[in-house]
């Protein structure tokens, strides 16, 4: 389909934006946009069926609206705006992100893909988004950015899942999205408690438990 390639390219650009930005509010909003764009994919690939319409609205509501609102409320409550001092600086993270994306495209060429997916951007984008999510998880200190990394990882898996929608009945897709929403909700509560106990949500303060 014509529309999927620009969509997937935008998704990759959003990965870069998130890797390079320090402003948490902007990061949350842009990851929300990524989720909303992904919601369009089932429609673009499978056309207007009940399955893709439900998946579209579910993903749009959960990934594009509810989860970002939860996270925005969380950063308002703990009063933080910026991710300062990431473990690796923003520019090196960006460079790593570019390398990983290039790697994802090269790697996807070697995969034994089904004939209909040979020239599409789906698999490399899914891999690149997952890698970016991992990078975010590893290189940031704030609990909230780690949650964003987890969300991005899930987004990458969602892209891959669009190719396999016949294997994932609505009940399962719905359950997966619900798990994600409740998971982020619980993470938000835990984040709030971290802030109350340690007066910051830097996960560096979580180092008392070790051998």
């Amino acid at each position: 389909m014509e529309i999927t390639n620009p969509l997937l390219l935008t998704v990759i650009l959003i990965n870069f934006f998130t890797l390079g930005s320090a402003r948490l509010g902007a990061c949350i909003r842009i990851v929300a946009l990524q989720g909303a764009l992904l919601a369009l994919l089932p429609l673009a690939v499978h056309g207007f069926s009940l399955h893709s319409l439900v998946l579209f609205s579910g993903a749009l509501l959960f990934k594009g609206v509810f989860i970002p609102l939860l996270l925005l409320r969380a950063i308002r409550e703990v009063r933080i705006r910026r991710e300062v001092e990431p473990v690796i600086g923003f520019v090196p993270t960006l460079i790593l992100g570019v390398l990983m994306t290039a790697g994802a495209f090269l790697f996807a060429d070697f995969l034994p893909l089904a004939v209909e997916h040979l020239d599409s951007l789906f698999v490399p984008t899914a891999l690149a988004t997952m890698f970016s999510g991992f990078l975010l998880l590893i290189t940031r200190r704030k609990a909230i950015t780690q949650v964003l990394g987890y969300l991005m990882l899930e987004n990458g898996i969602f892209i891959f899942g669009v190719l396999l929608s016949e294997a994932l009945p609505l009940m399962v897709e719905g359950g997966v999205l619900l798990d994600l929403l409740v998971g982020v909700f619980v993470m938000g509560i835990v984040m709030n408690q971290i802030n109350r106990e340690f007066s910051s949500i830097n996960t560096e303060s979580l180092t008392a438990l070790k051998e």
């Binding site: 987890y150 898996i157 294997a167 998971g183 835990v190 340690f198 008392a208 438990l209």
Partner: peptide
Amino acid sequence: KLSIEATWKYLLICSVGIALAMLGLLFVAY
């Protein structure tokens, strides 16, 4: 403080782990 640290690690590590399991399932379906 200790239990919150344990909870955070548990929640994040297991969620990411389980996300990878989902990827594995999709591979099997593929």
